[in-house]
């Protein structure tokens, strides 16, 4: 019984981890500029990685290796946002301007210099203020 519960818990964690990593991949491809990409790249991916690592820790059970996995988990959770901050900061420092909701509505497309000429299929209608209550 416990074995079955553990099995399904692992499956759920792995699937959730895969899902969030998938979202992260989609975000990295679709989002319009570096700052927006950093959101999914650092955070959604961190959660995805965290869930997958939690699954590994659960599967390894009570042994030395799962201690390492938990350490890895903590490490990823501390360093990933820091790395994202470093990257975003360097982007800001080098003068890459973000696409903002205002600049996107002004002329329909974000100003140049955002460095996102390849926003092919993914025109974000950023002006629309939807999903205000999404976060519950």
């Amino acid at each position: 019984m416990i074995e079955a519960a553990r099995f399904w818990a692992i499956v759920v964690l792995v699937v959730a981890g895969l899902f969030f990593t998938f979202v992260s991949a989609v975000g990295v491809i679709r989002l319009p500029d570096i700052y927006a990409r950093a959101h999914t790249a650092s955070q959604t991916d961190t959660l995805g990685a965290g869930l997958a690592l939690a699954a590994v820790a659960l599967a390894l059970g009570w042994q030395q290796a799962s201690v390492y996995t938990v350490l890895l988990l903590f490490f990823v959770f501390i360093t990933n946002p820091t790395a994202a901050h470093a990257i975003a900061r360097s982007a800001a420092e080098t003068g890459i301007e973000p696409v903002t909701a205002d600049s996107a509505t002004d002329d329909g497309s974000p100003d140049s210099g955002t460095g996102a000429p390849d926003r092919n299929s993914s025109e974000p209608d950023a002006g629309s203020d939807v999903d205000g209550g999404e976060t519950a």
Partner: peptide, 13 residues
């Protein structure tokens, strides 16, 4: 370097 980076390095080191 940003305080954030500096402090996290302090913690991790």
């Amino acid at each position: 370097e940003s305080q954030v980076i500096m402090t996290s390095v302090r913690i991790i080191a």
